[in-house]
Every structure is written in C-alpha cells, then in structure tokens.
Amino acid sequence: MVPIEHYFILALIMFTCGTLGVLFRRNLLFMLMSIELMLNAVNLVFVTASSFLGDLDGQIMVFFVITLAACEAGIGLAMVIAIYRRYGTINPDFLKVLRG
C-alpha cells in the first residue's frame, strides 16, 4: 500500500516543475505547457484524495479542471498565434508593451 504522502510528493514535484517552467521559460508555449503540468499535479491531488477518502467529489472536480484546461489551452494558444502574428515573437521578454 503506497502511503498518500508519496502521491502528494509526486504531485508536488510536478507542480514545482510546472511553476518553475511558467516562471522561467522565456517562451509562451512552454509557459502554457507548464500550466498544463501544474493543473495535472492538482488533478493528481484531487484523484488521490478522492481515492483514499472514498469520495467521488474529487474526481468530479478533476472533470471540471479538465474542462477548464481545455478552454484555457484553446484560448491561450489562440492568443499565442495572435501574438506571434502581431509581434513576430512569443518570447515574453520582447512583449513588454505595458512597461512602466
């Protein structure tokens, strides 16, 4: 029997990877993928908790998270395309239109 903490540690590793990817990869596509990774880490926590506690709410939440992720990816990628068309780059360092 695998203890629940190990699932959480796995989720934490994935989440950390995702966060660091979002924060430090200078590429919008990588940022979006890292966000997917983060969402999946969260999903893993939900499913684990649901499974260990015998409560299906967690799995339903995952269902909704996946729905959200689909929308997020769709719109995010559409924006990436629009940004690429407009600025010719998807490096956020070159997209500092709101520079103070």
Partner: peptide
C-alpha cells in the same frame, strides 16, 4: 519604482508566486 513595473509577464508572476 517603475523598475518593478517592467512589463515582464514572468517577473510579475515570480513575485506573485
């Protein structure tokens, strides 16, 4: 203080996190 308002998306995100 505008150095922190760099417009850099990820800089903001770092400080947010």
């Amino acid at each position: 203080s505008s150095w922190k308002n760099s417009g850099g998306l990820q800089t903001y995100a770092v400080f947010f996190v």
